[in-house]
Nucleic acid binder design. Structure first.
Length: 573
DNA sequence: GCCGTTTTCGGCCCGACTGTTTTCAGTCG
């Protein structure tokens, strides 16, 4: 039973309680607990096995701690079973329909006996819904449309993908007259790896004109709402965009509010409450008096805290860290001195060594490691020992042609099923850097997969484990791994873990990065570039690194060439 | 159901928008 499954059971319980019309605060308690569990980074099963006190986790009290133990022992818990017996299973998916919440769903079930999306669609089509008290024609139409969208599921988009739309919208909105400030807030600003919708905040002399301009954006499929200060639309690409306009004096409070996360906001507001203040998106108030709100700095200082970077605002300890003056100084792109994972035409890359090196130099880097695939990946011409020697000659030539960037000769060597490597130790011993990665046998059992990685790290030549979990965002779960064991071993063996900056990978994720940092493991933020343009993926890696609380000192490719080489060499020692 | 240098009980973030309403409930973020 992994944390994710336990969290899902609590989310489901919350949904069911909500439909049953239960106390909304109890519902929230389950969701808070689920959130805590999701971002824990430690295995609850193990914590329970070791007899650790679960109630010290935020949002988990005596009752939920007991339920967690029950889930781990029996696979579920009696309260959930009870609810599942009472509520038809189809009702939960109705929550995904726009305009339907727990109250209306309960009404529809009680009066029309609706228990599924299909029954909902039929009833709406027949006009039965608009006949109910409290429901009308418009709502019926919204529901009808909502049923179709609900079937598509609540899609989330990769950050990099969302960014292209965000930039386009900002460009478009900036054409509107009277626009002053503009910022894309929400999970986009927090640099979350996936973004559900875009929240754009503006200040303007005449907000209504901006709203008018906004809804004239050519790529809009549906206008969901359009008020005086807010509007919501759906783009043809199915991305939802919310626009909000506020006064200048509220810009900071609105930015803070719309940046979220919700959990962070609630925590901040609770602190404010205790200090006799009220925070909403218009400002910080003492009684009816506005006391702050122009900038986010004002909001934080009103509650006695230093500025907290958006990437940290998940209520995962950032508020406590801020109170105690130990917020991290998050790593930035200009601090990056090089890239330790990229490919060339020698395997499946599109550019030559020289072209990659020149591009890296163009980015202001001091070094770049050429790490093509090893022979196991035959279909993309992975390198064997012989080719590796030939490549060394070409690297030597490239070094002479571009003396002002240090070209490291490396490899992305395949980790075989038993944890041995695809190339001989002798061959690896001549390289400047060895990056090891899993590219096959993703379905091994957790024990075997973990053991495989541990054995690879035992090899004295292995410096870095690339994309450690192998997950592809929205496409493929990572391999089944005991991440704690992997990290402990990385620590013992002096192994570096990679944060792969490919927008579809971002592997390690934020939670694991924070865990690694806390354990004192160093991270290589690397693009895995397959052409010169890909080298620019570094900024996506930086986004993720910042969400993982990483500082310059945690990131090996912020080191000078000299220090980096010393570090890489020390592993072999 | 959680939580506590005001509390172990009584709170729990807060406001906009919509559609259905003659003053507000429900939903959403």
């Amino acid at each position: 039973m992994v944390n994710q499954q336990i969290a899902q059971k609590f989310y489901k319980t919350a949904d069911l309680l909500e439909i049953m019309g239960e106390n909304p605060f109890r519902v929230r308690a389950y969701r808070n607990a689920a959130r805590t569990i999701e971002s824990l980074g430690r295995d609850l099963s193990e914590m329970v096995a070791q007899g650790e006190e679960l109630t010290k986790l935020p949002g988990i009290g005596k009752d939920l701690a007991g339920k967690i133990r029950e889930i781990i022992e029996t696979g579920t818990f009696s309260k959930l079973k009870e609810l599942e017996a009472k509520v038809p299973p189809g009702l939960i998916e109705l929550l995904k329909v726009e305009g339907l919440g727990p109250k209306r769903i309960k009404t529809l079930y009680d009066t029309l006996g609706i228990t599924s999306l299909e029954e909902l669609r039929e009833a709406a089509a027949k006009g039965q819904i608009s006949a109910l008290p409290g429901f009308g024609k418009k709502l019926e139409q919204t529901i009808l449309k909502g049923v179709v969208l609900a079937k598509k599921e609540g899609r989330r988009f990769r950050w990099a993908y969302a960014e292209s739309f965000a930039l386009e919208l900002v460009r478009f909105l900036k054409k509107a007259k009277g626009l002053n400030q503009i910022e894309v807030a929400g999970s986009f600003r927090r640099r979350k790896e996936t973004v559900g919708d875009l929240d754009i905040l503006v200040t303007a002399s005449n907000p209504e004109k901006i709203i008018e301009h906004f809804v004239s954006f050519p790529d809009i499929k549906t206008i969901i709402s359009k008020g005086q200060t807010r509007s919501t639309v759906i783009l043809s690409s199915d991305i939802q965009v919310d626009l909000r306009a506020v006064e200048e004096e509220s810009y900071g409070s609105a930015l803070h509010y719309f940046t979220g996360s919700k959990a962070h906001n609630i925590a901040i507001r609770t602190i404010a409450q205790k200090a006799g203040l009220k925070i909403n998106e218009y400002g910080v108030f003492r009684g009816k008096d506005w006391v702050a709100g122009r900038s986010e700095d004002e909001i934080f200082s009103a509650v006695g805290l230093p500025f907290i970077e958006p990437e940290l605002r998940e209520n995962r300890g950032e508020i406590e860290a801020a109170m105690e003056g130990r917020l991290p100084q998050l790593v930035t792109l200009p601090e990056i001195r090089g890239d330790l994972h990229c490919h060339t035409k020698w395997s499946d890359g599109q550019n030559t060594i020289l072209e990659m090196a020149r591009a890296a130099k163009g980015l202001g880097y001091s070094y770049i490691a050429i790490t093509d695939h090893s022979r196991r990946l035959a279909m993309i011409k992975g390198l064997d020992e012989k080719k590796l020697e030939l490549q060394a000659i070409e690297i030597e030539e490239a070094r002479k042609r571009i003396p002002d960037i240090h070209i490291l000769h490396g490899i992305e060597v395949d980790i075989l099923e038993d944890g041995t490597l695809d190339l001989s130790d002798e061959a690896l011993s001549h390289l400047d850097v060895v990056v090891a990665a899993i590219h096959s046998k993703f379905k091994l059992s957790k024990t075997k997969q973990t053991e495989r990685l541990l054995r690879a790290m035992d090899n004295p030549h292995v410096n870095i484990i690339a994309h450690p979990t192998g997950r592809l965002i929205g496409e493929r779960e990572g391999y089944d791994l005991d991440m704690e064991k992997v990290m402990e071993h990385a620590k013992d063996r002096g192994c570096i873990l990679e944060l792969n900056a490919q927008p579809s990978r971002l592997d390690l994720n934020d939670v694991n990065l924070k865990l690694a940092k806390e354990m004192g493991i160093r991270i290589s933020i690397a693009t895995d570039a397959h052409n010169v343009d890909n080298l620019r993926f570094m900024r996506f890696g930086i986004n993720q690194a910042r969400r993982g609380w990483l500082e310059k000192k945690d990131v090996v490719n912020s080191l000078s060439t000299k220090k980096l080489l010393r570090l890489l060499h020390s592993k072999k020692g």
